[in-house]
Design a protein around this nucleic acid. Structure first.
Lengths: 236, 236
DNA sequence: CAGCATCCCGATTGATACTG
DNA sequence: CAGTATCAATCGGGATGCTG
């Protein structure tokens, strides 16, 4: 296994999860166990070879665990270990940084896990009056339950028993509305999204996610010669 | 340029800084600008080809900026842009995670930047009485000034004017004492470290860094069959 | 069909040498 | 000092094959 041979914690973290696709595999598992085939489906572009390799390595290093489900399911799933689960803050902080990139394509594919993590990251209660709601999110095959209470957001996998509302649509569409500034009504009219239930709860829910503005556009193409004088020498 | 074609912020972040060595280059620049040759020296194992590639890419994506120093220095340095500088929390969180790995080699090479970042990460004031001190760290060629005041730590590049104490030694040795539990006196006797100045300030300073304990040893080699019953099906 | 293993090929990396 | 050039080794991606 390749290594940076560096005692720095970050360098060692990259020994473990710095290989191509590794952190995306972890991202897909943050919300719960998945089967090999579902991982492959949720990571468009990964090859079966690479996925198998990454899962092996992540298992060997104690980030991921394989488990066979009890009968009658019988299938094998991959899940994060407790330590692997602690990568979630890392993933969210990296996501918060990358989301502000001027070169990010907001129209690219978005997995359900990607959307839910961005919800967790971008949630910001507005006025802190006691708004509470349970919203079921139907993202393709996957269902999630988002619960807002006391200015806290929780999103877990699985449908809700008695949701105040249900929102159904592709993750990318929902992201466009939640974090990309797209108009909800327009998305519904375009048949990209469908909603049911308490529409005022939906509106309040949607309004509680902050749009992360990209940093100032692409960097100036040419370096302006004398605008920023050298601040200091690289060495003493 | 290779991309995951994923709208998730984290995936895009990896498009930008996920290539091999990229984040280590950023780490080396977090404390201030550096020249090409110094980067190469501080990143043992990187090839000149890859370093040149990474710097090109990081410059194109607006993470790093090249600058020619004013005469008489005249040399070219690389420095983080404001946005690139915002990777520091990401690097620290990744470092905090990786530092707890059971497979991390604490005896490997450690760069001055790696040490200083781990200081910033692991600082935890103990009893909050008004301890204040200025300590100069001499790490090979590089000097840093660590200032503790009001339960806050600041470490900046450059020597101190009137430090309360001076500590000199290799970054790895200092890390062993600060975060690895090695005895200061023993390190001095072994001639790995030298100190000058207020020795009680040094002792108090050193005691304010928390040892991050590794997570429970290497994962169990064989999966115990029935110990953790399956929690749920991967799909509804 | 789930869960890989194999083979092939182009892209990336790393070691070394070389240049302005 | 600050890179570029070259080349072998490795890695990633795509297609396909295999096995229960």
């Amino acid at each position: 296994m390749r290594s940076y041979h560096d005692a720095c914690g970050m360098a060692h973290a990259l020994d473990l999860v710095g290989e191509r696709w590794a952190l995306l595999v972890v991202r897909e598992l943050v919300l719960g166990p998945k089967r090999y085939t579902d991982l492959r489906a949720d990571l468009p572009g990964i090859s079966t070879t690479v996925l198998a390799h990454r899962l092996d390595e992540l298992e060997q290093t104690g980030v991921v665990r394989r488990r066979r489900l009890a009968p009658p399911a019988g299938s094998t799933v991959y899940e994060l270990t407790d330590w692997g689960q602690e990568l979630e803050p890392v993933i969210r902080q990296l996501g918060r940084w990358g989301a502000r990139s001027p070169t990010r394509r907001r129209d690219a594919h978005l997995s359900a896990a990607g959307l839910v993590l961005s919800l967790r990251t971008n949630y910001q209660p507005d006025g802190s009056d006691g708004f509470a709601a349970t919203i079921e999110l139907r993202l393709g095959e996957d269902r999630f339950t988002a619960t807002v209470r006391d200015g806290q957001l929780a999103v877990v996998r699985g449908g809700a028993d008695e949701p105040d509302a249900v929102i159904e649509g592709a993750p990318g569409v929902l992201a466009g509305v939640l974090c990309g500034g797209r108009c909800l009504r327009e998305a519904i009219l375009a048949n990209d999204l469908s909603v049911r239930g308490d529409s005022s709860a939906i509106r309040r829910f949607l309004s509680q996610f902050s749009l992360s503005e990209p940093v100032s556009g692409p960097p100036p193409p040419i370096d302006s010669p004398e605008k920023t004088p050298p601040r200091r020498l690289p060495r003493e």
